[in-house]
Nucleic acid binder design. Structure first.
Lengths: 163, 163
DNA sequence: CAACATAGTGAAGGGGCATCACGACATGAC
DNA sequence: GTCATGTCGTGATGCCCCTTCACTATGTTG
């Protein structure tokens, strides 16, 4: 319609990349015996150091109850432990075991390797242009906040999905 | 390490975009009373026309059993129906109801709107550069096939996650 | 027609996620 | 110091996605 063809193309490419990358990450994680959610928790823990479950719940934007389950699983596989909080006896500090720390370090290395392979041989100015374009798109997304919601509201005012 | 800084930046931007876009799509869908999986099925149906569940299972790359459940849900919400296959009495043809067709059409419109907002005011050459960059990255991903797996294998030969 | 392949589904189970209710603890007010 | 109130984590339930295995009803082929 009013959307220029190359915009649609760009959108398609982004969606395709979204699919491909997230699929690949999921496969790689499961090859290491991890799931997306558990890896996400590990990642957050890696960047924050020992944390309470409440903090992790806020960081992962999931319910505290869910964190309990994820931590249970990671404890069961020996990647983290629950340590008592030094001052607050209600809270527990989720902490890496040696294996957990090693696995997280490996994840970080893998990511580096992934980035290296991904852009290997790609001209610098092309990478720069890519980053600029992505930044533009991201800025636009943040700015609009609601993004698609806004689009939907603009496209068909006053509709409601049956529930 | 050997990874140039701007490569890491580019990778980060891509990951961020992946997160933001998929989150947004999920939110938008659930606002319409849909889940990712069910919307995906609807989308596939939209592009293929009435299909057997087997075909949908292959298209979505999930087990046939799972399709049964998804179709059940879509039938329950009145978006599709199960019609008998004209020649094969084992199979059923999943078909849109009017509401289902309308909702799918709305999804397509929303996507157009989304693309429009996303790239509105962005210079053409910038969009072109973005598409070129994304194409490069996608090509590299397809070429490598295993992507991260390859990276992992190269980075730490002979490791196995405890299971 | 017998032998074999295929479409769909019941049963059972692994995860992710949410809400509600509740007990253990922290804290500020009195 | 005691008491109201808020917070941390978790048991109980329930929804959704997804899988494998077993089984029925049909197609297909020799």
């Amino acid at each position: 319609m009013t959307t220029p063809p190359h915009h649609a193309v760009a959108f398609d490419r982004i969606l395709e990349l979204v699919i491909v990358v997230s699929d690949d990450m999921t496969r790689t994680l499961s090859a290491q015996g991890l799931t997306d959610a558990r890896a996400h928790l590990l990642w957050e823990l890696h960047h924050r150091g020992p944390s309470t479950q409440r903090v992790l719940a806020d960081a992962l934007r999931v319910s505290p109850r869910n964190i309990t389950g994820l931590v249970d699983a990671l404890v069961a596989t020996g990647l983290v432990t629950r340590e008592p909080h030094p001052t607050d006896r209600r809270a527990t500090l989720v902490t890496f075991t040696e294996r957990g720390a090693a696995m997280t370090a490996a994840m970080e290395r893998d990511q580096q390797e992934f980035a290296r392979i991904l852009f290997a041989g790609m001209p610098d100015d092309r990478v720069t242009a890519l980053v600029d374009g992505l930044d533009d798109v991201l800025a636009r997304l943040k700015e609009h906040g609601l993004t698609v919601d806004a689009a939907r509201a603009a496209a068909n005012p006053g509709n409601e999905a049956g529930r």
